[in-house]
């Protein structure tokens, strides 16, 4: 046998040892994902964007000192006393008519932080920024999901994989599982980083939760709940990006179709039949990110108390919104997998 022949002679080992098992596929896909320059660039840009935002927040807010708090509390108490005095005199002049003077002022109406002489990073801002971080990671997840499989199709490397693992659902399932796991871990890491950053901002450029007057009960448990909701947004986003690009076999076309459907088609559908909003992706997305969900106007219905037709008020809760967007994403991903299983690869 020649030298070349020795190198290429059929394997003497049991060929079943050299097969693509599912754990091997998962490890390979994970390796590939972090080998991709796009992943590195996306992570780098995300880190840069985060640092720029934190820098902006750091320079925009000032630390609240005990003196600031004392000064604000005094101002708040003075205004509260003025209001109380005005209300008492109003009642005296109008025979204690609540209709004329309204109810008396309450301390909750005058949070101390509104009287501070400096602008601090306020704990009440944390929920909005938490959701902003969640939406940014979800957008990155959509892009990463679409390009992960879009790059496979555009380079046609998917064919090379099929020469090593012809079970298509298994192959694609490994890719999707790794994508979702990585995205979820990245989203959780982003939220942890944001939590630490928020605490640093509160400590050095803000007002502590304990210093809030009136206090907000269960502030941190609620903040963690918002963080969980924000982090989970990456799952439907990644599924959607992956599913669309896998179905169309082109990343750019996936973005175009996503934009066209969610911005144009759903707007037209909600205009034609407002009641459909409860099943629409965009409404579900807004309901998921918005605290307590949203209320939208549906189709006109007869309302006996007003004796006429008026739009039905539809409340879409966080959970309802979440299930809707997850449903869309799961169906699109499942259809794309089914098509991949059936189609001829040319």
């Amino acid at each position: 046998m020649t030298t070349i022949g020795r190198h290429v002679a059929p394997a003497p080992v049991d060929s079943t040892e050299q097969t693509a098992t599912f754990p091997r596929l998962l490890a390979t896909e994970l390796h590939r994902m972090f080998l991709r320059r796009f992943t590195k660039v996306l992570l780098g840009l995300s880190a840069l964007g985060f640092l720029v935002t934190i820098g902006y927040l750091w320079s925009s807010y000032q630390k609240v000192t005990p003196e600031h708090l004392a000064q604000a509390t005094a101002s708040r108490d003075m205004m509260f006393a003025d209001q109380q005095q005005w209300h008492d005199s109003c009642l005296a002049e109008n025979n204690n008519s609540v209709d004329m003077c309204g109810t008396g002022p309450e301390l909750d109406w005058f949070p101390v932080n509104q009287f501070l002489p400096v602008t601090p990073f306020d704990p009440t801002m944390i929920a909005d920024y938490t959701m902003a971080v969640g939406v940014a990671v979800a957008l990155a997840g959509f892009v990463l999901g679409a390009t992960t499989i879009g790059a496979e199709w555009s380079s046609k490397n998917i064919v090379a994989w099929l020469f090593f693992e012809p079970r298509r659902l298994r192959l694609m399932g490994a890719k999707l599982a790794v994508l979702l796991a990585v995205l979820l871990i990245l989203a959780v890491i982003a939220q942890l980083i944001w939590l630490v950053t928020a605490k640093l901002l509160l400590a050095y450029r803000g007002i502590g939760v304990a210093d809030l007057d009136p206090p907000i009960p269960d502030f941190w448990p609620h903040a963690l709940q918002v963080q969980l909701r924000a982090a989970l947004l990456v799952i439907p986003a990644g599924l959607l990006g992956f599913g669309l690009a896998n179905m169309i076999r082109n990343t750019a076309a996936a973005f175009g179709i996503a934009f066209g459907y969610f911005v144009v088609v759903e707007a037209v559908l909600s205009w034609l039949s407002p009641g459909l909003q409860r099943f629409q992706f965009t409404t579900g997305l807004i309901a998921w990110v918005h605290e307590g969900g949203i209320t939208v106007s549906g189709d006109d219905v007869y309302q006996p108390e007003y004796q006429g037709f008026f739009p039905e008020q539809i409340h879409i809760s966080n959970a309802h919104g979440g299930w809707v967007i997850l449903g869309y994403a799961a169906v699109i991903a499942a259809v794309s997998m089914w098509m991949f299983r059936r189609r001829d690869i040319t």
């Binding site: 050299q18 693509a20 091997r24 596929l25 490890a27 390979t28 390796h31 080998l35 994989w161 090593f164």
Partner: peptide, 8 residues
Amino acid sequence: LLAQASGI
């Protein structure tokens, strides 16, 4: 990557 997938 191809080798890793097949345990080569």
